[in-house]
Amino acid sequence: MIPAAFEYHRPQGLPEALHLLTEHGDGARALAGGHSLIPVMKLRMSAISHLVDLQDIADLRGITVGSTIRIGAMTTQAELINHAGLATAAPILREAALQIADPQVRNLGTVGGNVANGDPANDMPGLMQCLDATFTLAGPKGSREVRARDFYESAYVTARAEDELLVAISFAAPAGGYAYEKQKRKIGDYATAAAAVQLQASGGRVTQASIAMTNLSDTPVYSAAAGAALVRTACDQSAIKAAVAAMLGDINPVADNRGPVDFKRHVAGIILGRAITRAFSRT
């Protein structure tokens, strides 16, 4: 499995990388951790004549934790897991990242690649819906910000233009309880269904809830209705049932080797129920 020939570039800064992408147009692709792109290149499913390796660009790295959390796009899943400040400020990220692939893959796979690729099976896009994150994109005309909830158009189609790069992800430090629950066939697999839940409670009642689902549509699904179904409840069985019913109205899974549609809808309900229960227990 040898990819078709291409020219390799390793720019040292963001302007140089953007220049390469503009100069080579359609034939150019940015390389982050490579664990989605290289398999596609090996199968020769993608015609790439210029590969732009982002590993040396310092502006794409680093994690800043404050009232706003900012994660550079080239941060690997392993760096995200091992960042103590982040584990305290936004523990849902660590919980989700530990369920992605395996240790070797997490050492190379990046959070930026995971969100920017637009693969509905990836976990970070769903999580970023839940956190209402903002993506910073840099392009030849400067940079702009796009909400994660507006970023995904369909499978592998996002708001990012071909001459733009994802620079960073930022979001307000989340409060309250959290859970990222994922059903997969085996370690390393994509989700059959996964749920990201952040919720806040006061006096035993839910005051705020944010719910998003992974791999149950051609984009990640933010379910405002599911969150709303929990607010002002004691998060009891009937409230969870209502949230699951609302979520099922927002997803649109297709049958594949992870199962038929009915099975996926069933799993989605179970997984969301577990995620809500765990998140509430952590408030």
Binding site: Y8, G34, L51, P103, Q104
Partner: peptide, 8 residues
């Protein structure tokens, strides 16, 4: 640790 088959 990395997988050297998925790296140029």
């Amino acid at each position: 640790s990395v997988k050297s088959c998925t790296m140029f």
